[in-house]
Design a binder for these strands. Structure first.
Lengths: 219, 219
DNA sequence: CCTGATTTGGCAGTTACTGCCAAAACAATG
DNA sequence: CATTGTTTTGGCAGTAACTGCCAAATCAGG
């Protein structure tokens, strides 16, 4: 049976990421990762199918934390305000910040490490699945609804591109981004990518109360 | 040196797909694929990094054919008209149709074969890279432009979701789609997902001739 | 401390994949 | 056709990735 004790997985992922960054993916063996994490090789393979996927919990973490935060997204607040509030520096733990740096550095080497690309896309895809539920809840529609899944996919893709763009600019060209920069680019991309109007404040409605539905996809 | 004699790769991909569909991914070995394709196991590993990626040329084929066709997309024609014309049944070769069926069946088993998911996402990502150039060319902008890459990513994600949706409906629930259905859903999704107005006829412009630019992302 | 359930390690075994070299296939040239 | 050079392939040995199995360890609750 697949085990996913999240804490262990994340701990291994952090170590694996450091090894990948230091020595490259090819030069890092499963044995190395196991040794660095202080567990047996056997347990590494119990938690991960391939050595590249060892960093997956780390890569999906930003997306998952994002969806976590979005669950508490009040319907009265726009996405810009919510993002600013949630990503405020004083709300980030030290480990969150360290993880963020690791993620950015990993994303920046994707072009040179095509083996990690698949893991990165899988992580993004995981975030997409989480987004489906959030958007569905915010618009009072079913997560099975095609339009909802479409919107989640486009928004998720947009966030991926922003991540890639910012990471490359920061690592390769040494550009510096303030938190406000990042939030603003995120919000802008999400707005541009969203095929349904879920970014702006929505009226609070009781379940049975019907109102003109603004959530039809534009024809 | 990596070899990518496309014809061989595609031939292997077709055989691998049939084996995956018939026996499942886990029960199909590299040796099986090699035997079915009539080549040595060694050459299989020369063309593909993993056994799952053996089907990648097949999966990316629809996207790549799409981009091929889009290169000839006249600026005077809307996307609906172009898609209808390009996907007309009488323009598809027999092998195109067979490949299409294989692809649909593969996509339909993605939920049961998570190992193929990464390959599917990589194929979609390849299509995204192709779309960047097409959209850039159509809007007279650089492929490096962030807005262009964003648009390509959202459109590509939309096409992926449509593919997944149609494939599952067709295989699991036996729904039947006419070509017009598929084209209409594609065009609709692309329009909804596009963050830049590249779907409608654009004025033909000489390179140096400037005109009010409709391609700024909405703020 | 005992007991049952879950997690881990060790190790043998299988499968996926690589390096290396020689054979085969093909292309251009005399 | 013989030639040379180039590219693609196969065979095989070797390594690294990964699985199955069982026993040891860890842990939770009584």
């Amino acid at each position: 049976m697949p085990i996913d004790h999240d804490a262990t997985r994340l701990a291994i992922a952090r170590l694996a990421a450091r090894l990948f960054l230091a020595n490259g993916v090819a030069a890092t063996s499963g044995k190395d990762i196991a040794a660095a994490a202080g567990v047996s090789e056997r347990t590494v393979w119990r938690h991960f199918r391939t050595k590249e996927s060892c960093v997956e919990p780390l890569l999906s973490q930003s997306a998952l934390r994002f969806t976590q935060h979005m669950l508490g997204w009040s319907r009265l607040i726009s996405i810009e305000d919510h993002l600013s509030e949630v990503f405020a520096l004083d709300r980030q733990s030290e480990s969150d910040i360290q993880d963020g740096i690791l993620i950015v550095r990993l994303v920046a080497i994707l072009p040179k490490e095509p083996d990690l690309q698949a893991t990165w896309l899988m992580a993004s895809h995981l975030g997409e699945r989480g987004l489906v539920d959030i958007i569905a809840a915010r618009l009072d529609r079913s997560p099975d609804d095609f339009d909802i899944r479409l919107c989640a996919a486009t928004v998720s893709a947009a966030m991926r591109v922003v991540d890639e763009d910012i990471s490359l600019a920061a690592i390769e060209r040494g550009e510096v981004f303030t938190l406000a920069d990042v939030v603003s680019r995120m919000a802008r991309a999400i707005r541009a990518a969203s095929t349904l109007p879920f970014c702006d404040p929505l009226p609070l409605r009781k379940p049975n109360q019907s109102a003109p539905d603004p959530t039809q996809i534009r024809p």
